[in-house]
Design a protein around this nucleic acid. Structure first.
Length: 255
DNA sequence: ATGGCCTCGGTTCGAGGA
């Protein structure tokens, strides 16, 4: 079973990229973030025609998450029962006995801003729900755009980023707290190339300079971590015309 | 060199992203 997370930065703009990528990579579950589409505009027919079922929770202009699956999708929950949020950033569903939590964690803008405080509160709410879901779903994956680079090795230039948004200690503490639930960072279960990231700024020739960060993650419960045989980042679509600034992260689980 | 780019809405520039 292959599970993927990809922040597409507008599914309207990137639908063809998603379909092209799926054709080359017929994965089981693809979680999308930043679809930026209200539900009435969601391209359900195109995705179903590609052989995928889909559930989504969107809004106009900002945010929006979706789960595409080649297998039946059940027990869908939109948003977090423990955190009332008008922004559409969280979607959970059960697929093949695996509880899938697709998250678009707030960006946070910068420490000492209201958006950062929102990020912290949002993460507190996520911990609460995560703890409950883990009680009933030992096979659980939390994946998405975390907007957190967990360690310095996940940052192209750690010295330049000390204390800044995406790498600040309170954010990293939240990430560690997720691991304290027993979740494993799938990417770090394996030997990985150095300086491999999941996001590169559109500005400053970020991708060409490999000035990126690893902020998109797949966290596996202990039972799923045992089944994980690989986790890779696919930089291919970042090289396509008019790409998303993020690229897919793929985890493979044995049956 | 603290900017740079991209998307959206809704009209030509501001907000948000990371």
């Amino acid at each position: 079973m292959k599970l993927v997370t990809w922040n597409v930065n507008s599914l309207k703009v990137r639908l063809q990229h998603v379909l092209d990528w799926l054709k080359e990579n017929p994965v089981d579950v693809l979680c999308l973030q930043e679809t930026k589409l209200s539900d009435d505009k969601f391209p359900t027919a195109e995705i179903e025609a590609a052989g995928y079922q889909v559930v989504f929770s969107g809004q106009k202009t900002y945010n929006g998450v979706a789960i595409l699956s080649r297998h039946p999708i059940t027990d869908v929950v939109r948003n977090n029962p423990f955190y009332d949020d008008p922004q559409q950033r969280l979607l959970a569903a059960t697929i093949n006995g695996v509880r899938v939590m697709c998250a678009y964690i707030p960006n946070g803008q910068a420490p000492d801003t209201e958006k950062y405080a929102y990020k912290m509160a949002w993460l507190d709410g996520l911990h609460a729900w995560l703890a409950q879901e883990l009680k009933t779903h030992p096979q659980l994956v939390l994946l998405g755009d975390f907007n957190i680079a967990p360690e310095d090795r996940d940052v192209h230039d750690p010295a330049a980023w000390v204390g800044q948004n995406l790498v600040s200690e309170p954010e990293r503490e939240h990430f560690k707290k997720m691991l304290a639930h027993g979740l494993k960072d799938a990417f770090r279960l394996f030997e990985q190339p150095e300086k491999l990231f999941s996001w590169w700024d559109y500005r400053m020739l970020g991708f060409r300079r490999n000035a990126g960060m690893r902020i998109d993650h797949i966290l596996l419960s202990p039972l799923l971590a045992e089944r994980c045989t690989a986790c890779v980042i696919d930089k291919t679509p970042r090289k396509w015309e008019q790409p998303s600034d993020h690229t897919p992260v793929i985890a493979t689980l044995s049956d």
